[in-house]
């Protein structure tokens, strides 16, 4: 690989890693509080998988940057400042009710399925390999989320109302999912990372079909969320304060 592209590729993967990490944080807030025991166990599985995926991406970031893959990930997660995080605003939002969580997870996971399929074709073998492995887990998430979206969209008047309200709130944030990134064109030209626009189209079509089957209407929105991934909602600060609180008690220590 062209050495000049190592750092831009690392930055691209850092975005994916941060998305998974922050979403996993929100997912894990449900443990012990889900609507029924089986869903508690099922959703904990999703959180666990997301955390694992974050770990995989953070390790690749470390390797590309020439950092120690055993220690750099924890450095990134627990000792970066807020303005260094590169996650989507979508994943920062508080978990809301079960409908909000399911719709947010569906929007994110359905986008991941598309992204991972494309990443499997990366010219950087460690990335292609990681994507293939993660894709197997995401396929299961996708199946589970689609089942929930359909059932809750069509279930009762109340569940439909809550799902539609969630979609109305979340769809504007979804426009950020495939926003073209800095240095994207060079990475795309080198076959290292997929182009955003085709993925956006593929995802929008697939998601629209699932939502329509669940009788959920995609809201018409004005211009999408502006500003890049360096801009965050007000929710990220308290989230990071909580996430980093114990590690920062003794910043040099091993836990």
């Amino acid at each position: 690989m062209n050495l000049e592209l190592r750092l831009p590729l690392a930055d691209a993967l850092l975005r994916l890693a941060d998305d998974e990490m922050i979403l996993a944080h929100r997912d894990s807030e449900w443990t012990g509080h889900a609507p029924i025991l089986e869903e508690d166990i099922a959703f904990a599985n999703i959180a666990l998988d997301e955390m694992g995926h974050a770990g995989v991406w953070y390790r690749l970031v470390a390797e590309l940057r020439g950092e120690d893959p055993d220690t750099h990930p924890d450095q990134l997660v627990f000792h970066r400042a807020l303005d260094e995080f590169r996650c989507l605003r979508l994943v920062e939002l508080p978990k809301g009710d079960w409908a909000f969580t399911i719709v947010r997870q569906f929007l994110f996971d359905s986008a991941e399925v598309v992204r991972l399929q494309a990443l499997r074709r990366s010219e950087y073998p460690p990335l292609a390999k990681a994507a293939a492995k993660i894709a197997i887990e995401e396929r299961y998430h996708d199946r589970h989320l689609r089942a929930w979206v359909r059932r809750l969209g069509l279930g009762t008047e109340e569940s439909h109302r809550r799902m539609q309200a969630a979609l109305d709130q979340l769809w504007p944030y979804a426009t950020q999912l495939f926003e073209p990134q800095v240095s994207e064109s060079e990475l795309v030209a080198a076959g290292l990372f997929p182009a955003s626009e085709p993925m956006a189209a593929e995802w929008a079509e697939a998601a629209a079909a699932i939502l329509a089957d669940a009788d959920l209407k995609i809201p018409t929105v004005g211009p999408g969320m502006n500003g890049g991934r360096e801009n965050h909602t007000d929710h990220l600060e308290p989230l990071l304060a909580e996430m980093q609180s114990v590690a920062r008690l003794e910043p040099q220590a091993s836990w």
Binding site: S28, T31, G32, D40, L48, A54, Y58, E242, A247, W255
Partner: peptide
């Protein structure tokens, strides 16, 4: 038993600790 430990998942101080704690709490549900 999922509750006292579940509450600490968000504050687990390393990726390894976090993963392991989620797995443990999930087991308890199981």
């Amino acid at each position: 038993g999922m509750l006292p430990e579940g509450g600490w998942i968000t504050m687990a101080p390393s990726l390894r600790r976090k993963l392991v704690l989620v797995a443990k709490v999930q087991d308890e549900g199981g």
